[in-house]
């Protein structure tokens, strides 16, 4: 099992490396670079050339990539092409903000959707299932910017209890941020829960049909014991991967929600960096999102090992 995980970690690193190469090439093939973006359309070719050599953009792409890669390995992700600040510090701050948002979303979202999915499965085709399934379907089909807008309309305008946008900007403190994370978190929970609920419901229904649940019921077990001991562990297994994918999506893909609420997280930073072709910042965000994906999947596998004795104890030859 340890060698299996060592192998998985190895492949994860390869995945991260490949994704940085992909993004680097993609940015290179876009028309324009940081120099043209900073100086604008009316800049003279000479000024652009000067800025390029200042920023080091005149070196060949391959050598730039490798010098960036060398730095990245030592923890130095370079300086922003835009303002010359350390990329590490800037991305780090944005990541912290996004993590706060993500933590709240995950905690509320996962718990809520597992519970709702379980209820929908247990009360299959009855009113609780109908209600939950319909809501999940709505959550799935309505894009999150619509959900976000509706939330703002309801809770910032009609009933003004939450701020509509974050005013504080990049350097907001925790105290400044805290009141304004609830609406973006709610919007994210809506988007994230739908898939988990549906997966959980399906897998609970599958498990309910199994012989072992019937046997456990005919042993005279109480309903709570039946649900928590016999049904839940088996039903969680297929759901784990969906949860992992959703968490990963959350860290990498909060772009839309963050920019609606002007939340100073990774998403907002990424949009800005792409607009300005700020390659070092984009690359670091890429590395981070790739790492998150890989890490979430690793964690899901680990959790599957804990939940599934068939993986922990392969059938021995006696």
């Amino acid at each position: 099992m340890i060698s299996l995980f060592a192998k998985r970690v190895g492949w994860s690193l390869v995945t991260v490396l490949l994704s940085t190469i992909l993004v680097f090439t993609a940015i290179q093939s876009l028309p324009g670079d940081a120099a043209t973006q900073i100086l604008g359309q009316n800049a003279t070719p000479e000024a652009v050339a000067t800025l390029r050599s200042q920023l080091g953009l005149d070196e060949p792409a391959i050598s730039r990539f490798f010098s960036w890669l060398g730095g990245a390995f030592t923890g130095d992700f370079g300086t922003s092409l835009l303002d010359g600040k350390s990329v590490g510090a800037e991305v780090g701050r944005a990541l912290l903000n996004t993590s706060l948002l993500a933590a709240v979303t995950i905690l509320v979202g996962i718990t809520l959707s597992v519970v709702l999915g379980l209820l929908a499965g247990l009360f299959r085709d009855k009113w609780p299932d109908a209600t939950i399934s319909t809501l999940a379907l709505v959550g799935m089909s309505v894009p999150e910017f619509v959900v976000a807008t509706v939330l703002v309309l309801l809770f910032s305008i009609y009933i003004p209890i939450f701020p509509a946008v974050v005013v504080a900007g990049q350097d907001a403190s925790l105290a400044e941020l805290l009141p304004s994370i609830w609406l973006p978190a709610a919007a994210l929970v809506c988007a994230l829960s739908a898939y988990i609920i549906r997966m959980m419901r399906t897998s609970v229904i599958d498990v309910l049909d199994s012989d072992f649940v019937l046997t456990a019921r005919l042993k005279g077990n109480s309903t709570s014991r039946l649900v928590f001991k016999h049904i839940l562990p088996s039903a969680m297994l297929p759901t784990l991967n969906v949860i992992a994918m959703n968490i990963a999506w959350l860290i990498g893909g909060v772009v839309v929600v963050e920019s609606i609420f002007n939340y100073p997280g990774i998403g907002t930073l990424m949009i800005r960096s792409v607009q300005t072709r700020d390659l070092p910042t984009i690359l670091m965000i890429t590395v981070l999102s790739a790492l998150t994906y890989v890490l979430c999947n690793l964690l899901a596998d680990l959790a599957a090992h804990l939940l599934n004795p068939r993986l922990r104890f392969p059938r021995s030859a006696k």
């Binding site: 199994s210 012989d211 072992f212 649940v213 046997t215 456990a216 042993k219 016999h230 562990p233 088996s234």
Partner: peptide, 19 residues
């Protein structure tokens, strides 16, 4: 079901809870 009647199912392989 607890005290008086018990079932031995056809296929114990699928009737025992795997977890």
């Amino acid at each position: 079901r607890r005290n008086d009647v018990a079932l031995v199912p056809q296929n114990a392989g699928s009737a025992l809870t795997p977890t």
